[in-house]
């Protein structure tokens, strides 16, 4: 059986890598790329690697291999948390997120370089990304997100978020399905004056900058 399967989708090509030694798989991938050069050319590829644990240098070298054949790598799908974090480090999407989430996210976030993370961020975990950050999961107390653009949390936001560190600045927004960050900053502004009223605690909210201060309001999807 072939250890490499390739599928075309509206999102680009998906390459499934099966079991076997990594170096052999890379040789086989290289062979596919040269044999079907016209098929691949100029396209973008999402790599499915199953439970395989891959390091940042390994992902870098597969990215380089693809680039040599005029193909760009944009996402890694893996069940392995260490592969996911290696991919996230390289700014690759770590998952082909559920269609609905992508659609909603696309409405909030302008085009650009977003990092999608499909797990809960736990205390002590820090995400630094120059573009937008999308979390499909919770952001726990003690976790930290620093984003050049906006931050969307498809879960509970209870950690610290600093959005708009990049060019987007005060145009950045922060939204979450449950909104109670420990600290929230957009560009150089800090959200202040915790309201006593917590009646909206369990409702989706979006924070944005209005008249030079951070305002949170109901997030209507």
């Amino acid at each position: 059986m072939d250890r490499i399967t390739i599928k075309g989708t509206s999102d680009g090509l998906i390459v499934y890598l099966g079991a076997g030694a990594w170096s052999r798989l890379m040789e086989e991938l290289e062979a596919h790329l040269s044999q079907k050069a016209s098929f691949f050319k100029g396209g973008r590829v999402a790599l499915h690697v199953g439970p395989r644990r891959l390091t940042t240098p390994q992902l870098e070298s597969v990215g380089e291999l693809l680039i040599r054949h005029n193909v760009s790598l944009w996402a890694i799908e893996s069940d392995s948390p260490s592969t996911q974090s290696a991919a996230a480090e390289l700014g690759l999407e770590v998952s082909l997120s559920p269609r609905q989430v992508t659609d909603w996210t696309a409405r909030i976030l302008p085009q650009g370089n977003s990092l999608v993370i499909q797990r809960t961020l736990r205390s002590g975990q820090v995400i630094n990304h120059p573009g937008h950050v999308v979390i499909i999961g919770d952001v726990n107390p003690g976790a930290e997100i620093r984003a050049g653009g906006s931050v969307v949390v498809w879960g509970r936001l209870r950690g610290m978020v600093h959005a708009g560190l990049g060019e987007e600045g005060i145009k950045a927004v922060v939204c979450a399905l449950q909104f109670s960050p420990t600290q929230l900053r957009i560009s150089s502004l800090i959200a202040r004056s915790p309201a006593e009223d917590d009646s909206r605690d369990n409702l989706p909210e979006m924070a944005s900058v209005q008249n030079n201060q951070i305002v949170a309001e109901a997030w209507q999807k």
Binding site: S180, Q183, P194, D201
Partner: peptide, 12 residues
């Protein structure tokens, strides 16, 4: 506890 204790940010 979180419901009882949680404080909101960002609303002025």
């Amino acid at each position: 506890f979180f419901k009882r204790l949680s404080r909101k940010l960002g609303i002025r």
